[in-house]
Structure formats: structure tokens, C-alpha cells
């Protein structure tokens, strides 16, 4: 869920920002100073996502559990202790949490690279820029879904589930 949200928000923003830089010849200006866009623009953005997406996943997990607690206690008349017990039994061991974090790192790489790639290879007009942004979101979401499925296949094959 976090991966999809980040693809729509940050992946699109990367594509738009870098595409706009290309449109304004800012990328050419970097190259003439011998500064490689890959190192200066793509690497920091991708590293930032590798760090931040797992943190957002932890944040989303906590908010999800608290949201469930609120709904369970307020609407479904669960006791707090009952909710916590049920949650603990549902999350069997820390693997559930770690596998989510592992996947989120890969999702961060996908969102960063796809967003930057689409921005750097955008056309030279504003219509092409719009298309690049749309394409970055669609491609990121597709890759995230495929990567998620691959993770499940690998986890099952390794009997980690």
C-alpha cells in the first residue's frame, strides 16, 4: 500500500522534476560542468527512498494497528487487551514485519529508478512531460505488483511463510 502511494506521489514528482530540468536544459548544464545526472540526481533520490519507504512502512504499520484498535474498541466492542492478543497471534513472529520491510526497500528502488528514468528520458515539450509522469506512475505500480508477486513465490519456495 505504501509502495503504491509513494509511486503516485514521489515517483510522479521525480519524473516531473527531472523532466522539467531536461526541458529547461538544466541537465545539459550539469553535463557541461562534468557533473553526471546519474550521480547527482538519481542516486540521492533512490537512496532517500531506500531509507524512507521502510520508515513509512513502519509508520503505516503502527497507524494501521492503532486504527484497527480504534475501530475494534469503539465500534466492535473489543477490549484493548483482546485486540492486542489477537493482533499478536495474527502477526506470527517478526518475519511478517521484516518481510514487509525487505519488500519496501525493493519498492523504494523501483519507484526511484522508474521515476528518475522517465524524467531523464522525457521528451522536449510539456505534453511529453505529462506523458512521462503518467508513465512513471503506471510503470512503478506495475513493477511493484510484479515484485510483490515474485517475493511471495520466493518466500513460499523458501518456506518462509
Amino acid at each position: 500500500m505504501v509502495g503504491i502511494i509513494m509511486a503516485g506521489r514521489t515517483g510522479a514528482s521525480f519524473a516531473a522534476e527531472l523532466g522539467n530540468m531536461k526541458l529547461n536544459e538544466e541537465l545539459d548544464a550539469l553535463r557541461t560542468f562534468g557533473i553526471r545526472p546519474m550521480e547527482f540526481l538519481v542516486l540521492p533520490r533512490t537512496l532517500a527512498l531506500i531509507v524512507m519507504v521502510p520508515m513509512l512502512v513502519v509508520y503505516a504499520d503502527i497507524i494501521g494497528v492503532l486504527g484497527g484498535l480504534t475501530v475494534g474498541v469503539q465500534i466492535m466492542d473489543f477490549s484493548v487487551s483482546h485486540y492486542i492478543e489477537q493482533t499478536q497471534s495474527a502477526v506470527s513472529g517478526m518475519w511478517e514485519v521484516f518481510s514487509g520491510l525487505l519488500k519496501s526497500v525493493v519498492f523504494g528502488v523501483i519507484i526511484g529508478l522508474v521515476g528518475c528514468y522517465k524524467g531523464l528520458h522525457s521528451g522536449n515539450d510539456s505534453t511529453a512531460l505529462g506523458k512521462s509522469v503518467t508513465s512513471a506512475v503506471v510503470m512503478s505500480v506495475t513493477f511493484i505488483v510484479v515484485a510483490d508477486a515474485l517475493f511471495e513465490v520466493i518466500f513460499n519456495a523458501l518456506e518462509l511463510r
Partner: peptide, 29 residues
């Protein structure tokens, strides 16, 4: 490339940096 200075048609200043940072970046690099 270090022997060159280039002015592009629209200036091509890096929009996320202020003017001082625009001039400082090549020096820092």
C-alpha cells in the same frame, strides 16, 4: 569540458538551487 563555460538559451540555472548555490556547485565539484 573544464575549459568551457556555457550559457544556454534560457540560462538553464538549476531551479532547486539559489543563485549563489548555482555558482558554487561547479566550484565544489
Amino acid at each position: 569540458l573544464r575549459k568551457f563555460g556555457v550559457l544556454f538559451q534560457g540560462g538553464a540555472l538549476w531551479s532547486s538551487l539559489n543563485i549563489l548555490e548555482n555558482l558554487a556547485l561547479p566550484l565544489q565539484t
